[in-house]
Simulated scan of single mutants.
Amino acid sequence: MGCARGLCTAEKIFMFINIAFAMYAGALLATAARLAWDPSTYTWFRFLCAAQYRVSAAYVLAAGLWLVALVYLAAAAAAKRTVCLHIYAGGVACLAVSEVAYGAWMVASLVTWWREAPQAELARRALDLLHDLKPALLAVERYRDLARPLYDMIEEVEREAPNNAVVIVIFGLLGMVLQIAAFVMARRLARREAYGEGEAGGGGEKARSCSSSAPDDDSDSDARDDPRDTPPGWRKKANLRMYTILDKIF
């Protein structure tokens, strides 16, 4: 239970969020590398959707680098905590806005592409070709040892391809939750630091005021004890009164 309580502090949650951000950054940078250099990834995408390919490649790379910068800011918050946390929260908000804008543009552009682009017609014809190709592969007797594996691969692609969309949706939702949590935690920690600095500043002001007022009290007491300020003959009269009192007592 003690370990669990230690893990649920705001600082630890903020650290875990940024570990997840680092993992997302690595995945985005790897995807950007594949979009740039892996022919199995970019050839068909670039051929069918050239504009969407260029924007996606640039955005995925920029988002990965942005997440790396956010993780660095989270680490730098240990030194200049309040300033870095405010910048971090602003960076998370900018990333979320850019994701919404990118997603909206992609959906709108792909809908337009599917309706109007000639490459979309090629994609539809390619899907029809797959459906016609499978019976042809089964009908080939001479190359059955080659045709059967090709048929199985086409079947697997058709069966497993929708899982990619499910994975993208799940990780997108998880990323959205992480960004909301990161923004909330950064703002919370920044407010806590600002409150602590305010209390420290107030304590310092009180200490300075007390220290500045202390010499005045000492100076007043010194002024009261200064023999130069006593009236003439006052000390002799005081001594006579004291002797008179002592004579009456003894």
Rank of each mutant, 00 (worst) to 15 (best):
V68L: 06
L70P: 02
S40W: 09
R46P: 03
L67I: 02
R46W: 08
K80S: 14
A78L: 12
Q52E: 11
A57N: 10
A78Q: 15
T41Y: 05
A79Y: 11
H86R: 11
W44G: 15
A78V: 13
H86Y: 11
S56E: 06
A76W: 02
F47W: 09
V68K: 03
L48F: 09
H86K: 11
A69E: 05
V71N: 01
A58C: 09
S56L: 13
V83G: 08
V71E: 03
Y42D: 06
L67Q: 03
F45C: 07
A75K: 09
V60A: 01
Y53K: 04
A78S: 12
V83F: 09
W66I: 13
A77S: 15
V60E: 00
S56H: 10
S56M: 11
Y72T: 13
V68F: 03
H86V: 09
Y53R: 00
T43Y: 11
V83K: 06
V60N: 00
D38P: 05
L48Q: 05
D38N: 12
A77Y: 01
A79P: 05
H86F: 09
S56F: 09
Y59I: 10
A74S: 12
A51Y: 11
A79E: 14
V68M: 07
V55H: 07
L85S: 00
A77C: 10
Y53T: 04
D38G: 07
A57K: 02
P39S: 01
Y53C: 04
H86A: 14
K80P: 02
R54C: 11
W66F: 14
V68Q: 04
P39K: 04
R81M: 04
S40P: 02
A62I: 05
L70G: 06
Y53N: 01
W44F: 15
A63Q: 08
F45G: 05
A51S: 14
